[in-house]
């Protein structure tokens, strides 16, 4: 163990975050302001998610961190080792073994279960922010349920591109009340937000907001009757594990235009390869 308090934050800070989490769960999709602390990492590296994780972790938890689906990128590795050192919790890369999963911009491919907690790192929690820069105004729009501007934005997409071109951070409506930013997950992941058995918590450190989705909450991606929401992914199967149902990253492999598509969820891909699945690019 280290000389830090359990999970780095002091107890008063954790109580403040815990109160915000409970109010967030009581008002699904509403962004609860909280007194975000300065963390030993830069804004944009998951300071909000780290604070939420620190407030919910117990010594018995098994912790997993993914960054764009991967367990082995800088952000994921450093946050995992941060909690290994400051909380002494066990860690894992396997989705089904983890009790708390902190994620940057993906929802794991493997279905989540009751008893698991998914913590999202959120850069801009306000879905209306790029349409209306004033916080006083967006707050009023949420209180009056005035979301016409968001539909205008999606409509402008259609008039310009012929379809809704928003492909990530795709706005959703929670329990027919609050419009929420699901963090920059690909819209491929949006259907997994709804009716999820796990608790989903969202933390935005720089913007000082926490919001939450209790399990089995109805989450609907905004769309139009004649342009229904469509989750999209690259039209390939994984080059390593041949999965046709997972979200894919495009990887440039040489300077002659060569490329391959691989699962963004490394745990899902490795589990499939271990089970004997081989894609066309597997060595």
């Amino acid at each position: 163990m280290s000389d830090y308090n359990f999970a780095y934050l002091d107890e008063q800070t954790k109580r403040m975050i815990r109160r915000a989490i409970l109010k967030g769960l009581a008002i699904p999709g509403y962004q609860v302001p909280f007194a975000s602390r300065e963390m030993p990492m830069p804004y944009g590296w998951g300071t909000g998610g780290v604070q939420v994780s620190a407030a919910v972790l117990t010594p018995e938890d098994r912790f997993k961190v993914i960054d764009q689906g991967a367990d082995d990128t800088t952000n994921a590795v450093s946050i995992r080792s941060f909690f290994e050192r400051t909380a002494g919790v066990a860690t894992t890369t396997r989705t089904h073994e983890a009790t708390v999963i902190q994620t940057r911009h993906r929802i794991p491919e493997a279905p989540l279960a009751e008893g698991q907690i998914l913590v999202y790192q959120v850069p801009i929690p306000e879905p209306l922010r790029f349409l209306e820069p004033r916080e006083s105004e967006t707050r009023k729009m949420h209180s009056l349920e005035e979301y016409g501007l968001m539909h205008v934005k999606l409509y402008e997409d259609i008039s310009r591109h012929g379809h809704i071109a928003t492909s990530y951070a795709y706005p959703v409506k929670v329990e027919a009340r609050y419009v929420m930013d699901p963090s920059p997950i690909p819209k491929f992941d949006n259907p997994k937000l709804s009716d999820c058995p796990a608790i989903q918590l969202f933390g935005a450190g720089r913007e000082q907001r926490i919001y939450a989705l209790p399990p089995f909450t109805r989450v609907v991606s905004l769309d139009f009757e004649d342009h229904p929401f469509e989750p999209s992914k690259a039209d390939h199967s994984c080059g390593l594990c041949d999965a046709a149902d997972s979200y894919l990253d495009e990887v440039i492999v040489d300077d002659a235009g060569g490329r391959m598509f691989v699962c963004s969820d490394t745990d899902y891909c490795e589990a499939r390869q271990a089970a004997g699945h081989r894609g066309k690019d597997a060595a």
């Binding site: 359990f6 954790k14 109580r15 919910v56 399990p215």
Partner: peptide, 19 residues
């Protein structure tokens, strides 16, 4: 043991509030 006791109690309370 305040950090561990509070963390375990909060988990129970959060699960109760979430479900």
């Amino acid at each position: 043991n305040p950090p561990a006791d509070a963390a375990n109690a909060f988990r129970g309370l959060m699960e109760a509030m979430a479900r």
